[in-house]
Amino acid sequence: MTLFRLGYVAMSVELKNASPSQTMSYKRFQEIGDPEVAIRRLERITKSNIHNCLRLLKHNKAHDIEFFRLSSRLIPLATHEDLIEWDYLSGINEDLIKLGSFAEANEMRLDFHPDHFVVLNSPTKEIFNSSIKVLKYHYLLLKQMGINPTHRCVLHLGGRYKDKEKSLERFIDNWSLIPSEIQKLVMIENDDTSYTLENCLYVCEKLNIPLVFDIHHHLANHDETEWEIQWERVVNTWIDSDLPVKMHISSPKSESAFKSHADFIDVDMFLDFVNKANGSTEQIDCMIEAKQKDGALFQLVDELKGHPNVVMETASSFRWKK
Rank of each mutant, 00 (worst) to 15 (best):
E36Y: 08
S254H: 08
L57I: 06
Y139A: 01
D115C: 10
L120C: 04
V301K: 14
M312D: 12
C53Q: 13
V212H: 12
F258N: 05
F273T: 08
E126V: 06
K321E: 15
N221I: 08
D64E: 06
I288M: 08
L77M: 04
N148M: 01
K259A: 07
D294K: 05
F264P: 00
V13Q: 14
L54C: 10
D82P: 00
L6P: 01
E189N: 06
F4N: 09
I32H: 10
P76D: 07
G158S: 10
T124A: 04
R160N: 14
L89Y: 11
I97Q: 14
L168M: 15
F68G: 07
G279A: 06
L110Y: 06
Q299H: 12
Y195G: 09
S101Q: 13
M287V: 11
Y139G: 01
Y202L: 13
D163E: 15
Y88I: 06
A290W: 07
E226Y: 08
H216N: 08
I249G: 01
P20G: 03
R41C: 04
L74V: 03
E228L: 00
P149E: 06
T193R: 15
G158P: 11
Y26H: 15
K166F: 01
N17S: 14
P114A: 03
Q30N: 08
S194F: 09
T124V: 09
R40N: 14
D111V: 00
L219E: 14
L201W: 05
K276C: 11
R44H: 02
I172F: 02
T23G: 12
D173L: 07
K61F: 03
D302A: 11
L70H: 05
D111N: 15
L304A: 08
L243C: 06
D192F: 01
S48Y: 00
H156I: 09
L141D: 01
F68D: 07
D223C: 02
I75F: 07
P114L: 08
K259F: 00
E126A: 11
G100T: 00
F67R: 02
I84L: 12
I32Q: 12
E43Q: 11
L271V: 01
G295F: 03
R40H: 09
D266I: 04
E232K: 14
T46G: 03
A257W: 04
N106F: 02
L56G: 07
F273L: 05
N278A: 10
N60G: 02
D173I: 01
C53S: 14
E94N: 10
S256V: 12
E169P: 00
E85T: 13
L219Q: 13
E181R: 13
E81W: 07
